[in-house]
Design a protein around this nucleic acid. Sequence first.
DNA 1: CGATTCTTTGAAAACAGTCAATCTGTGTGG
DNA 2: CCACACAGATTGACTGTTTTCAAAGAATCG
Lengths: 192, 192
Amino acid sequence: MFITFKKYISEKTVLSDRDWAIIKPLCIIKKLRKQQYLLQEGEIWKYHAFVCEGCLRRYSIDEKGIEHIIQFVIENWWAGDRESLANETPSRYNIDAIENSAVLLIRKDNFDIICKKIPEFNELMNTILQRSLNASQLRIEAAISFTAEEKYLHFIKSFPNIANRVPRRMLASYLSITPETLSKIKNQITKK
Amino acid sequence: MFITFKKYISEKTVLSDRDWAIIKPLCIIKKLRKQQYLLQEGEIWKYHAFVCEGCLRRYSIDEKGIEHIIQFVIENWWAGDRESLANETPSRYNIDAIENSAVLLIRKDNFDIICKKIPEFNELMNTILQRSLNASQLRIEAAISFTAEEKYLHFIKSFPNIANRVPRRMLASYLSITPETLSKIKNQITKK
DNA sequence: CGATTCTTTGAAAACAGTCAATCTGTGTGG
DNA sequence: CCACACAGATTGACTGTTTTCAAAGAATCG
């Protein structure tokens, strides 16, 4: 598990053995069974979380009781609720495992210590924050400018590795269409 | 103009006169007439831009030629395309002025110098990046979980100061509905 | 004041959602 | 190992919402 994290970081920046000696003791590996929560609405999120293995979903529940999946997170991406983490406010999101998963957690205070001690790490984390923002922007554009069919085609083109791992009804939720509509769209496409 | 920026920063962190002596010479004030572009699709964005006065919009144009407004930016917010800035890639966005506006620009290289020299400034900018991400997340949720009417009500509640400044057809674009639909919705609401 | 653009209105069409029934696949217990 | 139950996926008819198109009314700008 830890090796996945180390490999991920090492592809992006170079850290010394001494750096890793700082980081490693502060990492917590958490295994999640399918369906298990990493975070529940109302909790205050205290970690930075890196998914080593598996697949999670982050979603909110609206006042009608409907789940809206904001994001799928697979291995080699970061999970969590940065807003709750930064502001120490109760989270509006739930995060749970779609597959049996392994997550590497670093408590916020420890994370900040690492960032202070290792400037390269700090810089990388800012780059990653920037990348998260880019991903958000793309998600907004897809949500506001595509029809249901375009959303689906765009998704399977952009994230083929996610599309075939998540249940259809969750994919529909992510695309903000109903499972029935998704089903009909797939049907239409194959007919063409 | 510059005083607006100074005031904004000073509300969030404390900088010394020496710090300001570093910052001020690196700031460029740019006035924009209504309709004037700050950034056009295809250009590489090189600045950090703070809106001192006025109102801008950031939008993309899809393959059908339709404009999709991603964001309105009024005084005391940051504009620009962080993705283009960070990756030095051509921007997918246009930014132009909805009102006569004044923008404070800091070239990327100078901005980095300021961040290096003034840790408080650097930290504040990371906080702002974090805030941008939060705003994006809210935008995603609104886009995927609301009906046209809910989107409108949510917007005027969340951004009353923007709602009455921008033309309806731009508001409609932001909400990703047609101007006709927006008009009908407003009509329905007032009837209630 | 005239021209242009923006907004509103109404009718018809397209699109996606709802509901109910059926089909499919998976896993469990007998 | 089979039968059954259950959840998820699909299908079809119907409903409701939003878009499209066209035209009229209102506002803005030179």
